[in-house]
Design a protein around this nucleic acid. Structure first.
Lengths: 354, 354
DNA sequence: GCGAGACGATAAATCGGTTTACAGCGGAAG
DNA sequence: CTTCCGCTGTAAACCGATTTATCGTCTCGC
């Protein structure tokens, strides 16, 4: 409050006095507990309106062991993926009457562990953690030690202590294999430009397994690194430098958004026609991929579904309605077939799920 | 807490008992107040370590009028700009010993006003609002009514009640005019694809004023709309359809990131060479703009500077070290001259500031 | 008419800290 | 020797809600 207008906020006692009842009665009315005479309830509501009373959510939770707060820790708020995730989490939490506290670990595991501890300081009812590395990283360890309610999201697979929610990377990559191999490609380049997280590894495995199953003769090259952009660019360039056309892939499956961008730029610079000479399918969709020309065929992660599922699973744990062992949830991705993938006119379709 | 391990968290009273002093003394030690004998301070710190005590930030603030919390309300967490902004705000707030509570208004003004009120419920020390529309929108009105400490960022210009912090859109656009007109362009298309916010209008005005000042004969076309993508695409296409080459612009200044993408895609589809036939400069930089080919000349907004400034200005108000009228802060942008702008070999340079 | 039970309301305890008012103590000044 | 002051430390009040224990009242059944 900025000094000038010096009227204190109304407290529950002010409301009680104004309505001629006790604070306990006001509390009951406000939280919808029965056992209040209709007449008194009305007077309380009148007083609330007249005084413009609003409950202090902090004081409200003070006496309870847990507060109606859900913590969220994500590695990076700049990325549209986590931005969308947080937005979804916020909606779902709000719908359930919880406030969200968001913090970014900025891809640092020690910071992640700190933030988890800070969430515990706030006596959050539960925490949703998108780990920097994996389900067994520092943050998850800390949560285990602090015996917190939590759900691991995105960069996490099955865990023996916490529920997990993630995109079905494996199935989605199988879907990409179906598309490319089904389209006649027998030589594919898998390109990964980010740190090799569990998610990226799973994508690689899914594609390889399915492609090999479809046709054992399929040839798969891989180009993985998390070097600087220039180095990676050179690597891609070198790959496509090969004189014999049959020595290089006819399709690229890029395993992350960043990777898609890099490959695309390099193909353009070399004036390789997409998809005629080389088809391109990317993991992780982005708005610009519909807008470029050619538009980019990509796997869209079900970020809203992940967010909603994560909150629901967490709330179930908090309320104790689920018991027993933790569950691994996989949400189906959607493959948006656009121009760069080759075979056009194919509708978007769901791939995988669990 | 998940039930099994049933040891309550240590409270300040536990620490006091363990150290053989009173809770008040522990409180003093913890908050670095002097007037505690060195011997006692040591014993308190020992007890804190032994018990693993951590303060409850909620209970801590309960007695004070304000709590060490800063609220942030942004229109959209999915956008990298606001994601980066929030990350910066979080860092700065944390460095000052505050916790941040972030909420997304999802481009809705009524929701914005709701969130502001909710921040006030939390007794935040101050709020940083990136308004959906402008400095006179519903959120700012509510903050005024609630007499809150606040700073408006990004989509806001001078306000008679709150300090504001934003990128220096005007000066940056002047810089773009310098670049393009200086490069010989005498016919420029200004393209805006998003809702016409105050920021976009300012960019337009800055460019027009400077370009006209440099050479009164400069011709400026404008294409502004917030229609659906397809409609906009058609509009751009139509613009470049003109048969006479001298009837169309030789350079495009796109006023938002989305707009840059749209224009770029359309130029590509029509196989118009960038920058040879048409130069392109965009407002708002993105990672992909360095990676595409040609790379995109763009104005980078000083998001970290904005965040840091916003927090510092807010803290100054909270602590009452600034008085008098609110101040409008403009942070200088950086123009990254890359390939699409034409004249290469020019280093990035700061444009504007205040 | 009386005890039991249901119902509504409230005073008081509680949560975990901070702040205030005051007390004890030792040294310096008068 | 007394007084006064500054320095430490503590008990108690306080913040704004929830929850508990208690109490009065009314009704019902016997």
């Amino acid at each position: 409050m900025s000094g000038i207008s010096d009227q204190r906020r109304a407290t529950i006692h002010d409301v009680a006095r104004c309505a001629g009842v006790s604070a306990a009665t006001v509390s009951k009315v406000l939280r919808g507990v029965s056992s209040v005479r209709a007449e008194n309830a009305r007077r309380v509501r009148d007083a609330v309106d007249r005084l413009g009373y609003r409950m202090d959510p902090l004081a409200s939770g003070l006496r309870n062991e847990q507060r109606r707060i859900i913590g969220a820790v994500v590695p990076d708020l700049k990325s549209p993926f986590f931005g969308a995730l947080v937005t979804g989490l916020e909606s779902a939490a709000e719908a359930a009457g919880y406030t969200m506290i968001v913090a970014s670990s900025r891809e640092s595991e020690t910071r992640e562990a700190d933030l988890v501890a800070r969430m515990s300081d706030w006596r959050v009812a539960g925490t949703i953690l998108a780990p920097v590395r994996s389900e067994s990283g520092l943050g998850a360890q800390r949560m285990r030690a602090l015996d917190m309610h939590a759900v691991l999201v995105d960069r996490a697979s099955a865990n023996d202590r916490f529920d997990t929610v993630a995109a079905d990377n494996y199935a989605a990559s199988c879907g990409v294999a179906d598309l490319l191999v089904g389209d006649g490609h027998r030589h594919v380049l898998l390109h990964g430009a980010t740190r090799i997280s569990k998610a990226v590894r799973t994508r690689l495995e899914g594609f390889t397994a399915r492609a090999t199953a479809l046709d054992p003769r399929v040839r798969i090259d891989t180009l993985l690194s998390d070097d600087a952009v220039d180095v990676q660019r050179l690597a891609i360039s070198a790959y496509f430098d090969t004189p014999k056309a049959d020595a290089r892939a006819t399709a690229v499956f890029s395993l992350s958004q960043h990777s898609t961008l890099l490959v695309l730029a390099e193909l353009r610079r070399r004036a390789i026609r997409v998809p005629d000479e080389v088809a391109l399918v990317g993991f992780d969709d982005a708005e610009w991929m519909q807008t470029t020309w050619p538009s980019i065929t990509a796997v869209a992660q079900p970020v809203d579904a992940i967010a909603e599922r994560a909150v629901h699973v967490l709330l179930a744990r908090i309320e104790g309605t689920t018991g027993g062992y933790p569950v691994q949830h996989l949400e189906p991705c959607v493959l948006h077939a656009r121009q760069s993938g080759g075979s056009a006119d194919e509708p978007s379709r769901h791939v995988g799920g669990g």
